[in-house]
């Protein structure tokens, strides 16, 4: 992926994560604190810097809660901590508060600023001083964080091996990279456990493992508030085709109700330890079909690649959400 694609994907992940954080704590709008927590939860440079200063997702969350509680206590208002809400399967949008909007949209078209350090800088300098207060609770000062942001150098972690299993057929491939704040072993046990498949894979409403190891899955449909699934597509078989313990798992997706009528598709998840969490490379690949559909496929290839990329991002968001 190009630097620009990386930047677009990263900002999309930040907004999705911040929106989920806002939902989790019951904010009516996406707020500055949600953005700060989101920066620690996505694998961008700002998160690298914060983690190097000891700020994890959990520490950021508790520091934010502490600042609100302290402010209220100083004003004499007792506020019992509220229980976090359970995230829904599919996230909706939330409006952004005016100050979060300013931080998110300032300089967004400046292509020199292709990473999320700009957002953290703006959060730290933001005039209400909220994020500076949170940093103080974490034992950090704003200037120290800004200096660390300037001093950051990329330490990209390359994937520890192939992103999918070797196969000589002419696959078309789309890969999206992400990062989750959890150890590879935790991610591995999540993605390989059929009982937890629906917790992260937004495609399926039910998954059962058969005796032969194949997962019998049902696609989400109208009953779950999604679009209706065309007849013959509801059931899917998820067949394990490759497994490198703790690092790579790949499945072939089959439609038992449409024998021979659907292109062969595979989904691979590759894990690499990175920056106190896990780099997750998700790859979807498929074999082209012949006849008139090949011509249509060729014409629509850019659209298809975009759609597959979005699908992979949704799966990545599901994995990250299940582990935050």
């Amino acid at each position: 992926m190009s630097r620009l694609t990386d930047a677009v994907v990263l900002s999309q992940q930040i907004v999705v994560t911040a929106t989920e954080e806002a939902y989790r704590v019951g904010h009516a709008e996406l707020e500055l604190d949600d953005l700060l927590v989101a920066l620690t939860a996505v694998g961008g440079p700002a998160g690298d810097v914060l983690r190097s200063l000891g700020v994890t997702v959990d520490r950021a969350r508790s520091a934010v809660a502490q600042v609100h509680a302290d402010r209220l206590a100083r004003a004499g208002v007792p506020a019992p901590p509220a229980q976090p809400r359970t995230l829904p399967r599919t996230g909706g949008g939330l409006p952004w508060s005016p100050r979060a909007d300013r931080v998110l949209t300032a300089g967004q078209w400046d292509l020199r600023l292709v990473d999320d350090r700009r957002i953290l800088r703006d959060l730290v300098r933001e005039p209400s001083g909220f994020v500076a207060e949170v940093l103080a609770v974490l034992g950090l000062d704003a200037e120290g964080v800004l200096t660390a942001l300037d001093a950051w150098v990329p330490t990209a972690t390359a994937p520890s091996g192939a992103l999918f299993s070797p196969d000589p057929r002419p696959w078309r491939t789309v890969t999206r990279r992400g990062w989750v704040p959890a150890a590879p072993a935790e991610v591995w046990s999540l993605v390989t456990d059929p009982a937890r498949r629906t917790a992260w894979d937004p495609w399926y409403s039910a998954v059962e493992e058969r005796a032969d190891g194949v997962l019998a899955a049902t696609l989400v449909g109208e009953a779950e508030g999604a679009k209706p699934v065309p007849p013959g597509f509801e059931r899917q078989e998820v067949v394990p085709v490759a497994r490198e313990e703790g690092r790579l798992v790949e499945w072939e997706l089959r439609r038992p109700d449409r024998p021979g009528g659907a292109p062969v598709q595979r989904l691979a998840v590759a894990l690499t330890p990175s920056g106190g969490g896990t780099r997750v490379d998700l790859t979807v690949r498929w074999l082209g079909v012949g006849g008139w559909r090949a011509v249509v496929g060729l014409l629509l290839r850019p659209v298809a690649r975009l759609a597959w990329g979005q699908m992979l991002l949704a799966k990545h968001a599901g994995i990250a959400r299940a582990l935050r």
Partner: peptide, 24 residues
């Protein structure tokens, strides 16, 4: 305590957190 105006900065920040709490 909430209406104490002797320290406006503390008061304003408290009101801001209070607004978030009330909305939630």
């Amino acid at each position: 305590a909430a209406g104490d105006t002797s320290d406006p900065l503390t008061g304003l920040r408290a009101v801001s957190s209070l607004r978030v709490l009330v909305e939630s």
